[in-house]
């Protein structure tokens, strides 16, 4: 039987990517460009979108070239329909529609968060994991139950990626270690800290966490100057990750899952990985971290999820491809996931 190839487009935030994946799970190519904001600034949606417009055709062209298949072998176009920044999503969606119409193949809009889970399952061989998605856009604990991915715990306000990004920006910490990637600055500084800052709040509510109060307090304390910035980074990490480990463990023991999957940009943090490993060690549970190349935003995950959806009979018309900047993960029916666990073990 001949293979089915899907072309995927990712454009939810800072990364514009184009990938081609076959239905036996091979990633032929994954071309990316990343919008880097001015030092000390966040992503401005319009600026990122303009950057995407300038680079998109080159990325798509390169992807097709490097994949060594011809465009008419592509049988499906998948794109990240949400959630994300509106202007950025719109660029990806427009390109996807154009490709779908000109190649005359079906189009499928994919949920970015679900795509993180599906590529993670593909690359780690997990079947029914409790997935922890930690990134700038998501901080949630997800498992499959009764036809959808369900959210068993999440942040009540800002995400873990947000917490670190805003902390670094507010205190202009990139100045301290200019060579360091924005996302790793707290982790790097924390390595030279070790004293616990007691004034920081630890906020767990049920299976949820809240990081906004922790952020405000950490900034205040840093400005007071009583503690070194290294100690504050150390404590910030310890507390934020402990909160996440605790709610993950809660969901894990309640759902009795046998696998834990870590994904999203923040899961590259080594201390977080170590703590999660320590957490599962008493539970006889497998844990896997999605390789950083594919835990960060990419288009292979979009193409792969598109294939899964397509093969399960999901169909979309062009009219259904409006972007969904605030699409929640638990609003998506997932006919491609079999109910391995049955509905009962999914109960909280």
């Amino acid at each position: 039987m001949s293979l089915l190839y899907a072309l995927g487009i990712e454009s939810t935030a800072h990364t514009f990517a184009c990938s081609i994946v076959s239905d036996d799970g091979k990633i032929l190519v994954d071309e990316r460009v990343r919008f880097t904001p001015e030092k000390g600034k966040g992503i401005h949606p319009r600026e990122a979108a303009n950057f995407f417009v300038e680079n998109a055709s080159k990325v798509v062209e390169n992807a097709i070239k490097k994949s060594s298949i011809s465009p008419d072998e592509i049988s499906l176009v998948a794109f990240a329909q949400g959630p994300g920044l509106g202007p950025c999503l719109r660029v990806g969606a427009t390109i996807a529609r154009t490709l779908s119409l000109s190649l005359n193949v079906p189009i499928i809009g994919v949920h970015h968060g679900i795509a993180h889970i599906e590529i993670g399952k593909l690359l780690t061989g997990m079947h029914d994991p409790l997935t922890v998605i930690v990134s700038g856009g998501h901080t949630c604990i997800v498992a499959h139950n009764a036809g959808r991915y369900r959210i068993y715990g999440e942040t009540l306000d800002i995400t873990l990626g947000n917490l670190f990004d805003v902390f670094v920006r507010e205190l202009d910490l990139s100045r301290k270690i200019p060579a360091c990637k924005m996302g790793s600055i707290v982790e790097e500084l924390a390595k030279n800290g070790g004293t616990m800052v007691e004034e920081l709040p630890y906020i767990v509510k049920g299976n949820d966490v809240s990081y906004s109060g922790l952020l405000t307090r950490a900034i205040e304390i840093a400005r007071e100057g009583k503690y070194s910035i290294e100690d504050i980074c150390f404590s910030l990490q310890e507390i934020a990750f402990s909160m996440l480990c605790e709610v993950t463990e809660r969901a894990l023991t309640q759902l009795r899952k046998k696998e834990v999957l870590l994904t999203g940009g923040v899961c590259a943090n080594k201390r977080l990985q170590e703590m999660m490993r320590d957490m599962v060690s008493i539970h006889n549970v497998k844990i896997a971290v999605v390789p950083s190349e594919y835990s960060a935003d990419n288009a292979a995950m979009i193409a792969w999820t598109g294939i899964l959806a397509y093969k399960a009979g999901v169909k979309m018309d062009i009219e259904d491809t409006f972007i969904k900047p605030r699409w929640r993960l638990d609003e998506v029916d997932t006919p491609w996931v079999s109910n391995i666990s049955g509905s009962r073990s999914g109960n909280l």
Partner: peptide
């Protein structure tokens, strides 16, 4: 209010029907 919100969310995840 958080208690009510979280209860609602937990029900939706665990007993959607």
């Amino acid at each position: 209010a958080t208690e009510i919100h979280l209860f609602k969310r937990a029900l939706k995840a665990s007993h959607p029907d």
